[in-house]
Simulated scan of single mutants.
Amino acid sequence: MKRLLPITLAGVLACLAATGAAAQDYPSRDVRMVVPWGAGGGTDGIVRKVSTIAEKELGGTIYVENIEGGISATGVMQAMSARPDGYTIASLTYDSVVTVPWQKLLPGYNLEKLALIARITSEADAIIASADASYGTFEELIAAAKEQPGEIQVAIQNLGSRTHLTMLRLEGMTGAKFDLIAYPGGAAPQKEALLSGEVDYAVTSLGDFASLLDAGDAKGIVEFSDAPNPAYKDVPIAKDAGVDLEMGSFIVLAAPAGTPDDVIAELEDAYKAAYDSGEFQNWVAKVGVTPSWLGSGEVTDWANQTQGDLFTLMQDLEKQGVLKQ
């Protein structure tokens, strides 16, 4: 037994040395960025853009892999279970931080299995109408939903998702009643539904629908924010219509827990440089996305606080019979 101790100690030291060397050489191969939503949606576009810029700073390729399912849980779980070496990272959204843990969708899903790198955006939800929708203003839409309760169809994302919660809160605050149609998979299927005429309204961020807004195929009729969107200043905010409702999503970058600190620092530095670049800032301004940076020293506390506050709100709605877990 006495002879095993030096061997074991030598093995530990060798592993530590290997980890240090790996961190110094990072990245020595391509980095996989998991986007837990479908290609073509808002999150996908933003993450692809910032990663393309970040890889120049990092000195290696960052490629995006879209892994859909479980309101983002399927893709995020892959990141949680990946080797913590910096070669698999992921993007998280509201549903990853709030909806999935709230609904307990996947056993073993726990944000403590991730090391959060940074928050890069904070996006308010909005109601977006098709170009030929019957009600072209927020006031007209609310009035019609009161006169015709349950008749006006609105595309949300998943049942229990952020967009669902936004509409439930809006109904509670205004007395309007909508027919909420779930389109799992993020903004991409909502776009298809609006373009095909399945629905005339959708709720998500203006940035998610930037291509349709810019083409004139859709228009924003209200945004649930505290200030007008810099890219879409003509879209009114709900507060100006007497509805004090603020709601929206965000994008957070993360790596598996246990990823070496210096690797996290390299990733954070690369993405911060990309975030600060004129290329990214000009691009997000054009697509109506609000850049909002929180680094690794702040983002975990912010995520925990956000999750706790929204859990409290959802528990209250559940007690009222408005929301089911």
Results as ranks from 00 to 15, higher is better:
residue 116 L to G: 00
residue 136 G to P: 00
residue 139 E to W: 02
residue 128 I to S: 07
residue 143 A to F: 03
residue 135 Y to T: 02
residue 121 T to L: 09
residue 132 D to P: 00
residue 130 S to I: 02
residue 131 A to T: 07
residue 139 E to F: 01
residue 142 I to P: 08
residue 137 T to Q: 05
residue 130 S to E: 04
residue 125 D to F: 09
residue 139 E to M: 04
residue 124 A to E: 13
residue 133 A to K: 05
residue 131 A to N: 10
residue 138 F to T: 01
residue 138 F to G: 03
residue 115 A to F: 08
residue 141 L to P: 06
residue 125 D to L: 10
residue 144 A to P: 11
residue 139 E to T: 14
residue 118 A to S: 15
residue 124 A to V: 06
residue 128 I to M: 09
residue 122 S to A: 14
residue 137 T to H: 03
residue 144 A to L: 09
residue 126 A to Y: 07
residue 114 L to G: 07
residue 119 R to I: 13
residue 124 A to N: 11
residue 123 E to V: 12
residue 117 I to C: 09
residue 115 A to T: 15
residue 142 I to Q: 00
residue 141 L to C: 02
residue 118 A to D: 13
residue 140 E to H: 03
residue 140 E to S: 10
residue 114 L to P: 10
residue 122 S to P: 05
residue 120 I to E: 13
residue 140 E to G: 04
residue 114 L to F: 08
residue 129 A to L: 05
residue 141 L to W: 00
residue 132 D to F: 05
residue 143 A to Q: 14
residue 122 S to C: 07
residue 125 D to S: 15
residue 122 S to R: 14
residue 131 A to V: 10
residue 134 S to Y: 00
residue 129 A to C: 08
residue 118 A to I: 10
residue 130 S to Y: 00
residue 123 E to K: 00
residue 120 I to R: 00
residue 134 S to P: 00
residue 130 S to M: 02
residue 117 I to R: 01
residue 118 A to T: 14
residue 121 T to Q: 08
residue 127 I to A: 09
residue 143 A to T: 14
residue 123 E to R: 12
residue 121 T to P: 09
residue 138 F to A: 03
residue 114 L to T: 10
residue 143 A to P: 08
residue 121 T to F: 07
residue 114 L to D: 09
residue 136 G to F: 02
residue 131 A to E: 13
residue 133 A to G: 06
residue 117 I to V: 15
residue 117 I to M: 08
residue 131 A to C: 05
residue 135 Y to N: 07
residue 144 A to W: 03
residue 118 A to G: 06
residue 133 A to E: 07
residue 120 I to V: 15
residue 121 T to A: 08
residue 144 A to H: 06
residue 134 S to T: 12
residue 113 K to F: 07
residue 131 A to D: 11
residue 118 A to C: 15
residue 126 A to T: 08
residue 121 T to M: 08
residue 130 S to Q: 04
residue 122 S to N: 14
residue 120 I to Y: 08
residue 144 A to D: 04
residue 119 R to D: 11
residue 117 I to N: 04
residue 116 L to H: 10
residue 125 D to P: 08
residue 115 A to W: 03
residue 134 S to G: 11
residue 113 K to E: 12
residue 131 A to L: 02
residue 140 E to A: 11
residue 129 A to G: 06
residue 120 I to L: 14
